[in-house]
Amino acid sequence: MNIQIDGDLKLAMAPQPDRKPVSHIRKSWALARRYSQITFGGTLLLILVLISILAPVLGTVDPRAMDTLSRLRPPSAAHWFGTDMLGRDLYSRVLYGGRNSLMIGFSVMVISAFIGTLIGLISAYIRWLDGVIMRIMDGLMSVPSILLAIALMSLTGASLTTVITAISIIEIPRIARLIRGTVLSLREQPYVEAAITSGSGPFRIIFRHLLPGTVSPLIIQSTYVWAVAMIIETMLSFIGAGTPPTIPSWGNIMSDGRALWQVKPYMVFIPGVFLTLTVLAINVLGDGLRDAFDPRIALRK
């Protein structure tokens, strides 16, 4: 006993190593390095979103203004990315197009996350509806997404709303399945069973105990929905079944450049690079979030 105290005392008396107070900057830097994917993806995405939001003050002109005298100009000081066949400034079109492309992807993400969560919750909670709902979701998921969107677009005509609706309908079943699976496994957890036994009502159980558990898988899946939605929008616009041609979007700009791409490849590749960077940023961010949230992966590290 004595020895023990002695040892403890000695330890306490021993000169403490010099501990410098850790600055906030250093702490943040360490955190940023630990979650390097989130830092990289998040920063890149933030930059691209800022560029789109700040498009009016970044030296752009009206993206729809035609100038027949300067058509198909290569990139120059006056037109940084050149002009298209109607003499519209491509730099302005790409920046303003980014607004629409990002907005479409973001809207699809929010809408499908909301409706998908609702359907998933209903399916997991009301057992007799589960079979019916999931067969409908299976059916929807077995239609290849581009084709489903094409069929929807060909019937409703092109507008921003129909593009967003069509892509959301594609993504809703994926979210619904995820939420249903998560909620079903959460329901079996002892703490939920305890809540049920102690007489909590269904609303309290759903909002207090089940929904919080779905947040991290939902956020991760939603980032991918955002990325996928932007790619689908681009593909639809590219084949002429997407965003109306009067509204600039990255897909539309590439679609415009399509006829001339062998002579003016930059008309396709510049918006292509912007789109790729955005989707890349979102995907890396999603991967980072998945790794950060998933305790299994964290353990392996």
């Binding site: 593909m235 590439m254 490849p265 292509g272 790729t276 989707v279 890349l280 995907n283």
Partner: peptide, 29 residues
């Protein structure tokens, strides 16, 4: 893989055509 995953398929197509059909002329456009 992350980069390739993020490029829309038609951009990949145009890049391949630029290199192997228009540039090297190995394959039909």
């Amino acid at each position: 893989t992350v980069l390739n995953f993020s490029i829309p398929n038609f951009i990949v197509g145009y890049l391949l055509v630029s290199i192997f059909a228009l540039g090297l002329r190995w394959l039909p456009v």
